[in-house]
Simulated scan of single mutants.
Amino acid sequence: MGTAEQLADLEKAGDVVYQNSRYGNTYVIDRPGLNDTFDSGVPIVHLGQIEGIDALVAGYPADWSSVLLWCSRRTTEARSAGRGDSDTAARLAAWDATQADVDAHPAQAWDLSVDTAAVEPVEAAQLIHALLSRRGEVDRPQ
Rank of each mutant, 00 (worst) to 15 (best):
D63T: 08
E77Q: 14
H46N: 14
V45P: 04
R74G: 10
S40N: 15
T37C: 11
L56G: 04
C71D: 15
S66D: 05
L34V: 11
V45N: 09
P61E: 07
L68A: 09
A62M: 04
G52K: 01
W70Y: 13
D39T: 13
T37Y: 07
Y60C: 01
W64Q: 02
S66T: 15
S40H: 07
V57Q: 13
C71W: 10
N35I: 15
L34I: 13
E51V: 03
S72Q: 07
S72T: 13
F38Y: 06
P43H: 08
S40Y: 00
I50C: 03
V57S: 04
S40W: 00
C71F: 12
A62G: 08
A62S: 12
G41T: 15
I50Q: 09
Q49H: 09
T37S: 14
P61I: 03
W64Y: 03
A58Q: 14
G59L: 01
P43N: 11
Y60W: 05
V57W: 01
F38K: 15
E77Y: 04
A58F: 00
H46S: 15
P61K: 08
D36V: 14
S65P: 04
C71H: 12
D39S: 14
V42K: 10
I53K: 10
V67A: 04
L56P: 00
F38E: 12
V67Y: 07
Q49S: 13
E77K: 15
E77T: 05
P61C: 03
Y60T: 01
S66W: 02
S72F: 06
S66R: 11
Q49C: 08
W70L: 01
T37N: 05
I44S: 11
S66A: 11
D63Q: 08
S72P: 00
D39W: 01
A55M: 06
P43S: 14
R73A: 08
E51A: 08
G33A: 12
S65R: 13
F38A: 14
S72A: 10
R73C: 05
Y60R: 02
E51I: 00
L68F: 10
D36F: 04
L56N: 09
D39V: 06
R73W: 06
A58R: 14
P61N: 03
G52T: 05
D39N: 14
L47Y: 11
G41M: 12
A62T: 02
S65G: 10
A55F: 00
G52W: 00
G48F: 05
R73E: 13
A62V: 13
D36G: 08
G41D: 10
R74S: 15
A58M: 03
S65Q: 10
S66C: 09
G52M: 05
P61F: 00
T76Q: 11
S65L: 10
A55P: 00
A62N: 02
L56F: 02
I50T: 11
D63H: 09
S66M: 12
A62W: 02
R73P: 00
R73S: 04
A62F: 01
F38S: 14
V67D: 08
G59W: 04
L56Q: 09
I53N: 13
L68E: 02
T75I: 04
D54P: 00
D39G: 12
L69Y: 02
P43R: 07
Q49Y: 05
T76H: 07
E51L: 01
T75K: 03
L68N: 09
P43G: 11
G41L: 13
P61D: 02
I53M: 12
H46W: 07
P61L: 03
T37G: 02
Y60M: 05
